[in-house]
């Protein structure tokens, strides 16, 4: 992929210092009817930190990720972003969501808009940016992830990997404080996974705060500051990547990792 020029359009993070708590999850429970999807979850993600959520399917990692911008409501507990509690509904919630970028497993590009319009929709309609200014901003981010040439196409005309890189550019154009990635490579053909992971690694190097739900151990080893292992709606173990993958502390993690390695 095209490597971005150094220092050009890195994410702006003017507020708190690196290392201060940015996302704080406190004692969160989430019910689906009788089923407890999240159990007493506590998690703190510091500014500039890259956290990988890992665990078997149904372990609650996607639910936790989606709860952080309230695409899922929680039953009890609290989630704060940069010191502010997540509002329940309405305009305040919308404003807070603009600070939290999100990339989905299935890309979710707006099917009726061009690639450029996908990226400018937020800046124009949420931040009130002029169209020309938004176009320039969008092109910068699209070039950064290497899909600037596709700006006038519709999403369906792009490959999965290209679509996912557009989705990353779309999130970045809102200048978020934190980025959430919900299994960003799970829907991709194997040959396209690398191009997306490369974009994530670049982002991590530039100091973006990231929460990534993924099974890509290579990525976790290379870019993550911390691995959080979840099972049955609970956080079982938190560790540095090298330690987690070579010497996991819990039986659940050992069991999970052995299956993951066999599968690959």
């Amino acid at each position: 992929m095209v490597m971005p020029e150094e220092g050009n359009a890195g994410p702006e993070r003017p507020l708190a210092e690196v290392g201060e708590p940015l996302v704080v999850v406190r004692d969160v429970q989430k019910h689906y009817g009788d089923f407890l999807a999240l159990k007493n979850v506590d998690l703190t993600v510091n500014r500039g930190e890259v956290v990988v959520l890992i665990g078997p399917s149904g372990s609650g990692k996607s639910t936790l990720c989606r709860s952080i911008n309230r695409l899922e409501t929680i039953t009890s507990g609290s989630i704060t972003i940069d010191g502010k509690e997540l509002p329940k509904e309405g305009r305040a919630l919308a404003e807070l969501r603009a600070d939290v970028g999100m990339v989905f497993q299935s890309f979710n590009l707006f099917a009726h808009l061009t690639i450029l319009e996908n990226v400018t929709l937020g800046p124009i309609n949420v931040k009130g940016m002029k169209k020309k200014e938004a176009d320039e901003l969008a092109m910068t981010h699209l070039d950064r992830v290497g899909v600037g040439q596709q700006a006038d196409k519709l999403p369906a005309e792009l490959s999965g990997g290209q679509q996912q890189r557009v989705a990353i550019a779309r999130a970045l154009a809102m200048k978020p404080k934190v980025m959430l990635f919900d299994e960003p490579t799970s829907a991709l053909d194997p040959e396209m996974i690398t191009e997306v992971l490369d974009a994530l690694i670049d982002l991590a190097r530039e100091g973006m705060t990231m929460i990534v739900v993924t099974h890509e151990m290579g990525f976790a080893r290379q870019a993550a500051d911390r691995v959080v292992f979840m099972a049955d709606g609970q956080i079982v173990e938190e560790a540095e990547p090298e330690q987690f993958f070579t010497n996991p502390g819990s039986d659940r993690a050992k069991d999970f990792l052995s299956k993951l390695l066999t599968a690959h």
């Binding site: 919308a94 969501r97 603009a98 989905f104 979710n108 707006f110 099917a111 929709l121 309609n125 989705a167």
Partner: peptide
Amino acid sequence: VPAGQAEAARAIGLPFTKVMTLVVLPQAFR
């Protein structure tokens, strides 16, 4: 319209009316 379209629109900070008018209804309309 796939639920993901509205989710993506909400995730970039669009309020409900704009999620509807800019993303969901134009696609629903077709």
